[in-house]
Amino acid sequence: MTSVIDVRRAGERFHTRTNWLDSKHSFSFSRHWDPANTHFGLLLVSNDDTVAPGTGFDTHPHRDMEIITWVLDGALVHQDSEGHHGIVYPGLAQRMSAGTGILHSEKNDSWTLTGDPAHRNPVHFIQMWTIPDTAGTVPGYEQLDINDQLSEGGWTTLASGMAKHAQQRAIGVRQKHAALHVTRLRAGETLETVTAPFAHLHVARGELALEGAGLLSQGDTARITAAEGQRITGGPEGAEVLMWEMTAALG
């Protein structure tokens, strides 16, 4: 099967803006609905959020969802009904499994815990949701700093439920058909995408050239069906890239 690359530009995404939140949605989300754009592969949500200081998402519920948060700038405070608590910062892989049901909040108020005035800035993060392969499991939480791995270059497996990544993944995800990889691509550096039925690239920062598609800038995404290891090359200032590898899709 020949690869099909569907590029979605940053300016084409659904956009929610309030006095505290600037959120761009890659798929149908909240009041934004397009029946032709509900998911890709197993990826249901990919939101690019900026939250103002001293604000955030109040306590709210989730059920049977694997939620991964990747912070680009600032720090985000996570608290949930299972007693998990953490400050999520750039380079920290974090996953919450909602399972049978969980309540959580996400706030940009980390300076109240750290005393660091540098945290009185907006927090910018990408939040991604996929369904678990088994419903009704016990809620869970996992996080790990992967800055050292990222500094070595190449792809780092941020989260995976695939058996083949069991020894190299940073954290797990309860979906055996999905994995999330990340790289901080240097200027001129070339890597290859995964070879997989479905690959989803998100340029979180900078720009890159994608073989067969051309230039992708910050906020652009590429949905690749039958990915065959397409080359990506970092732009003049490099790029930070999130890549989902998926071997199944929602029906």
Score class of each variant (00 low, 15 high):
132 P>K: 10
96 M>S: 12
102 I>R: 01
120 R>P: 13
140 G>D: 08
108 N>F: 00
144 L>E: 06
143 Q>F: 10
134 T>M: 09
90 P>M: 09
86 G>E: 15
99 G>K: 00
105 S>H: 10
125 F>Q: 03
112 T>W: 02
112 T>A: 11
106 E>S: 07
89 Y>R: 09
123 V>I: 02
143 Q>R: 11
101 G>C: 10
130 T>I: 15
124 H>N: 15
131 I>E: 06
96 M>P: 00
142 E>Y: 02
98 A>R: 05
117 P>V: 15
137 T>M: 13
116 D>P: 00
138 V>D: 12
148 D>A: 15
143 Q>I: 06
126 I>M: 11
141 Y>R: 06
110 S>L: 03
144 L>V: 11
125 F>S: 02
149 Q>K: 13
84 H>W: 08
97 S>L: 02
122 P>V: 09
133 D>G: 14
131 I>W: 03
91 G>Y: 02
86 G>D: 14
90 P>C: 10
111 W>D: 07
115 G>N: 12
121 N>D: 11
141 Y>L: 10
99 G>R: 01
98 A>F: 05
85 H>L: 12
88 V>F: 00
140 G>F: 05
132 P>Y: 05
107 K>C: 08
129 W>I: 14
135 A>K: 12
132 P>G: 11
87 I>Q: 01
126 I>T: 08
112 T>C: 03
97 S>Y: 01
85 H>V: 09
85 H>R: 09
151 S>A: 15
135 A>Q: 10
139 P>N: 09
85 H>I: 06
146 I>N: 00
103 L>A: 11
109 D>E: 14
127 Q>F: 08
116 D>Q: 00
94 Q>L: 08
86 G>S: 14
114 T>V: 12
112 T>V: 07
110 S>G: 14
141 Y>K: 02
141 Y>H: 10
99 G>H: 03
138 V>L: 10
